[in-house]
Design a binder for these strands. Structure first.
Lengths: 131, 131
DNA sequence: CAGGATCCTAAACGATACTG
DNA sequence: CAGTATCGTTTAGGATCCTG
């Protein structure tokens, strides 16, 4: 896998390179649940179960997994209090708030333009995705 | 062109609903290759093979599939000229340029902050994703 | 309550071969 | 050239049970 490790600064367009590390981060952030977690946490601190309730349809496993990935990237702060029963809170780090803003902007655009988009879909009677 | 804005607009927070149609669009746009295709097409019109060469690591199948999804959403315009050999061009629609800007903004943020992010990762010696 | 461990299914993905 | 079709592999995702 690793051959000539060039430690040069990632330039614009690096994204198109196969091994660009940005791709992984991008995937974590834009994953099915990643987006929702980031946007959800913009409105404050949540406990695991609260977050799970807020985000419709997410399983325990995926929520935990998503939170771990985002924590590893430094976007989410996990604060556990050593009590019984366990009390764990999740919030955005400063960096997390920055990405979240970007992600929210994209999500907002889509929500705001859903009708235009759906209209396009209808017009083409898309038979590819619906199948 | 749409004057009839009287239909109820999806409000903020719809995204958290299980059946929110935005989620699908969001997935198409933020999918592994969707992001790259959108950003790539910001710099102009491309033929299939050119696009494939530009985007490192994408297979024919996935590129075709991604393009079709984005076309169905009305983000990508496919222009085929009935000649032999086939000549097909892909470009962004107006709507496509709008989403692409959002997506690019996110991608740029990540590329620009990669070092900060990687530093976080190192600091935590993430053992979850690498495993 | 917050998750880890396990098991399983569905979907994504990729390589190759083939066609108009 | 620009795909489609097929197949095999990998990953995402979910259900359930279990523990501190």
């Amino acid at each position: 896998m690793n051959n000539t490790e060039t430690l040069d600064q990632p330039q614009r367009g690096e994204l198109f390179a196969v091994a660009c590390p940005s791709r992984q981060v991008l995937q974590n952030v834009t994953s099915r649940w990643g987006v929702l977690v980031l946007v959800a946490l913009m409105s404050g601190t949540y406990r695991f179960s609260d977050l799970r309730r807020k985000i419709g349809g997410v399983s325990e496993k995926m929520l935990a997994q998503t939170l771990q990935a985002l924590e590893a990237d430094g976007f989410v702060l996990r604060t556990a209090r050593p009590v019984v029963p366990p009390y764990v809170e999740y919030s955005l780090t400063h960096m997390g708030q920055e990405v979240a803003r970007e992600v929210e902007s994209l999500a907002d655009w889509i929500e705001g333009n859903l009708y235009r988009i759906m209209a396009q879909r209808q017009a083409r009677e898309s038979e590819l995705q619906a199948a």
